[in-house]
């Protein structure tokens, strides 16, 4: 534990200025994860820049895209009429996450920035390459029931814990980042990273940038979408596996489909192969099963999480069936 400076600002620009002034600064939004990390000694910022008063809470339709400000709370987004009508998948994914109390303070930007819940990452007495480069991975040969089956590296098999991000990657969202030169846009699917050789890096946000909003193009998936989260208890538990499924159907023919999975990788896991396979086919359980099978090609278990090799495809099939039967 070290002492830290607490600063508060009311504009994105001044937040960026403050960010660049100190070496080890962090933005404080809802704080639902950051404060825990500080208490556990996992992170020790010298400066906390409170951005809760920065006006980035908008939820609005601009042209063909829905813009959601980085400081909009999870509950504000989940309960917003526009989101419920146009992007119900996002609303359900948010409601499947955390608890009502946490959703009331957690923000969209903070949700994207949350760190893995791997137990080894949180215990400074145990090895973790993500927390301390080169210290080893406690999970690979340890308790890895919650861990990744896709895109793992020898250094880290942690999973990204968010539900919201699974929906956002499925919805082809874009992330708008602000730096001193102006705004930069990246696809949501490119925001988070695989662990690779740099498990300490969760995403591609540069040290001099802040997330200002996400933009989500409108789609025709609202009628037939579903977020299915499989977990150890009915609420307030991270996903063993979750699937965001959206279908655009025309007489049971799949015109468009989006599939993404949570609880299986270091980043929200988009199932593009399965999507390609399903496009133009009939929405049948047989085709869903085939798509699920195709999704698992590169999956790898580490012992305690081997069950995910079965649970993941099952959840894909069930989510697709539930999305289909929504109509």
């Amino acid at each position: 534990m070290i002492n830290f400076q607490y600063l508060r600002t009311t504009s994105a620009k001044s937040a960026l200025v403050l960010l660049q002034k100190g070496k080890n600064s962090k933005f404080l939004a809802g704080g639902t994860n950051l404060i825990d990390l500080m208490k556990r000694g996992v992170t020790a910022p010298e400066r906390l820049i409170d951005i809760n008063h920065v006006p980035l809470k908008q939820i609005e339709l601009i042209g063909t895209k829905i813009h959601i400000g980085a400081m909009a709370t999870n509950s504000a987004v989940a309960d917003h009429a526009l989101i419920k009508e146009k992007l119900p998948l996002l609303s359900w994914a948010l409601q499947a996450g955390a608890s009502a109390q946490l959703r009331n303070v957690a923000t969209v930007g903070g949700n994207m920035m949350q760190r893995t819940r791997c137990g080894y990452f949180y215990d400074t007495e145990m090895p973790c390459n993500k927390r301390e480069a080169g210290s080893g991975c406690g999970a690979i040969d340890g308790f890895n029931r919650m861990h990744a089956i896709f895109g793992t590296s020898e250094k880290c098999i942690a999973v990204h814990p968010s539900d919201m991000c699974i929906a956002l990657v499925a919805l082809d969202a874009e992330v708008v980042l602000l730096n001193s030169k102006g705004e930069r846009k990246i696809l949501f699917k490119d925001f988070h990273r695989l662990a690779g050789d740099t498990p300490q890096l969760d995403n591609n946000l540069r040290p001099d940038e802040m997330i200002v909003r996400v933009e989500i193009p409108l789609n025709n998936l609202a009628k037939n979408s579903y977020y299915l989260k499989v977990r150890d208890r009915a609420s307030y538990a991270f996903a063993l596996v979750s699937v965001a499924a959206g279908l655009e159907l025309l007489n049971n023919k799949i015109v468009n489909v989006r599939l993404a999975m949570g609880g299986v990788a270091h980043k929200p896991w988009r199932l593009t192969t399965a999507e390609e396979f399903l496009k133009g086919k009939d929405a049948t359980t047989e085709n869903f099963e085939q798509a699920a099978k195709l999704s698992m090609t590169d999956a790898k278990g580490f012992g305690e999480n081997n069950f995910k090799l079965k649970l993941a495809p099952n959840t894909i099939i069930e989510a697709l069936n539930l999305a289909k039967s929504k109509a």
Partner: peptide, 9 residues
């Protein structure tokens, strides 16, 4: 975690 004797959860 029996390798460390520490609780994980």
């Amino acid at each position: 975690d029996h390798r460390y004797g520490r609780y994980i959860n």
